[in-house]
């Protein structure tokens, strides 16, 4: 078990990081077949990384290892974005998620981990029930997915450019864009408010006292 986990983690991180770059090749339109094999290999590799690191998160009880697994999963998804010709989104996924959010979560892990008294997982029968629910959910989703006739339109050869996304953000989606910035501001204030300490204003005081 330990060894299996090790290989999953290592393979995950490595190929996620490598895959991100590899998938970054100027995307090939899906209809044409010259490099579909390469694309398929890239897809399967990154899908495997994402799924395996997801499973590793599921079974591992070590929070910091989970962080690394999540990094692998996020990297793999970013690679898939590159494969889907959403370069901007892939880069943003890496920079915001992997660079920013994960560091934040790591902070959380380190601020709150305690001598291994906490039980990480729920009781056994609950675990089984959860598994059953998830498998059922998955089967249901798959049935829906496979039974639906998706009206796919032939995609254009050109990848979506940064300029196009930017234009869309500032024209059609201006209101959600502004709302998102308001949300970020609220989040900033909220997070600062939540973690403040009563009666003192944090480490600055400590430094001054010295």
């Amino acid at each position: 078990m330990r060894h299996a986990l090790r290989w999953i983690v290592m393979a995950g991180v490595w190929s996620a990081l490598a895959g991100t770059a590899w998938g970054a090749e100027a995307p090939v339109p899906p209809a044409e077949s010259s490099s579909t094999i390469l694309e398929a290999i890239a897809f399967y590799a990154m899908a495997a990384v994402a799924l395996l690191s997801g499973l590793a998160i599921l079974v591992s009880r070590n929070l910091v290892r989970n962080v690394v697994c999540l990094l692998a999963a996020l990297g793999a998804v970013a690679g898939l974005y590159f494969l889907l010709a959403a370069n901007l989104l892939g880069a943003i996924q890496l920079i915001v998620y992997a660079g920013g959010t994960l560091v934040l979560i790591t902070f959380g892990v380190m601020l709150t981990s305690r001598p291994g008294s906490d039980r990480q997982l729920v009781r056994g029968w609950e675990r089984i029930a959860g598994g059953v629910v998830c498998v059922t959910l998955f089967i249901g989703l798959c049935m829906v997915l496979l039974c639906t006739e998706w009206a796919t339109v032939a995609a254009s050869a050109e990848p979506t450019t940064v300029a196009a996304v930017g234009r869309a953000l500032l024209t059609d989606y201006l209101v959600p864009f502004e709302l998102a910035s308001v949300l970020l501001l609220v989040m900033l204030i909220g997070a600062a408010y939540l973690v403040r300490r009563d009666g003192e204003s944090g480490a600055e005081d400590d430094a001054d006292r010295c």
């Binding site: 090749e25 100027a26 990094l71 880069a91 943003i92 920079i95 560091v103 380190m110």
Partner: peptide, 27 residues
């Protein structure tokens, strides 16, 4: 690879390195 988001890509790679340092420190 002449990426159209090359700058963001490079910055993201520099950002991921940080996690390695944190993990090294913890481990």
């Amino acid at each position: 690879r002449n990426l159209d988001v090359a700058l963001l890509f490079v910055l993201a790679m520099l950002g991921i390195e940080v996690i390695a340092v944190i993990v090294a420190g913890w481990a």
